[in-house]
Amino acid sequence: MPIITVTTTITTRFDVPEGVSVDLIRHQALPVLSENDEDTDAVCVLQDTALNRVYLGAADARSQSVEHSITEGEA
């Protein structure tokens, strides 16, 4: 049986105020993102729901992961 990967990407861009470094933002914001298990779980549940509709309730995720990063630039 083939294996598929479902990827949900959420990208938000913010203007950085003068005098605030990206390192400071990472230091203070990444722990908050990592602690928010409830919202992270909601994304995983959304993926499970979508696939269970297709598989008529028989979708079992092999694994799920969430990664947070804060990068500098327009990318």
Rank of each mutant, 00 (worst) to 15 (best):
A50S: 09
Q28S: 13
A58L: 13
A29K: 13
A50P: 00
D39H: 14
A29D: 01
P31K: 11
C44Q: 10
D41K: 15
R53W: 09
T40G: 10
C44T: 03
D60G: 07
L51D: 03
D39K: 15
R53D: 06
V43Q: 05
A59N: 12
D60N: 14
N36M: 04
P31T: 05
S63N: 12
C44P: 00
C44V: 04
D41W: 07
E67K: 15
H27T: 11
S69C: 02
Q64T: 12
S65F: 01
S34F: 02
S69L: 08
R62M: 13
T40A: 13
L56G: 06
A58S: 12
Q64S: 14
E67H: 14
R53C: 05
L33Q: 08
D39A: 09
L30A: 02
Q28I: 09
V43H: 13
N36R: 08
S63L: 08
A59V: 03
E35M: 12
D48H: 14
V32I: 12
V54W: 13
V32H: 09
V45C: 05
L46V: 05
L46P: 00
E67A: 14
C44R: 10
E38T: 10
P31F: 03
V43I: 11
H27P: 00
A59I: 05
Q64Y: 10
V66T: 12
Q47S: 11
V32G: 02
D37C: 07
T40M: 09
G57P: 11
D37P: 04
L56Q: 14
L30R: 03
P31M: 07
S65W: 02
S34M: 06
H68R: 05
Y55N: 06
G57I: 03
V45P: 06
Q47D: 03
H68M: 01
D41P: 03
V32R: 14
A61C: 08
A58G: 07
Q28L: 12
V66Q: 06
A59H: 14
A29G: 03
L51S: 04
H27Q: 12
T49H: 12
A58F: 12
A61I: 03
A59T: 04
E38G: 09
L56V: 02
S69E: 11
Q47P: 03
H27C: 01
A59W: 15
A29V: 13
V66F: 02
V43D: 00
A58V: 05
G57N: 13
L51G: 04
R53S: 03
E38N: 11
L46I: 03
L30D: 00
D37V: 09
L46C: 06
Q64K: 15
Y55H: 10
A42S: 10
A42Q: 10
A61R: 15
Q28V: 08
T49E: 04
L56C: 04
S63K: 15
S34C: 06
D41T: 12
A59P: 03
D41M: 07
S63I: 01
L30M: 01
P31G: 06
S65M: 05
T49L: 02
L56Y: 03
Q28E: 11
H68L: 01
H27I: 00
N52I: 02
L30W: 00
C44M: 10
D41L: 13
Y55F: 15
G57R: 15
Q47I: 14
E67C: 05
A29Q: 08
R62A: 11
V32C: 05
V32E: 04
S63Q: 13
V54T: 06
S34K: 15
D60Y: 13
Y55V: 00
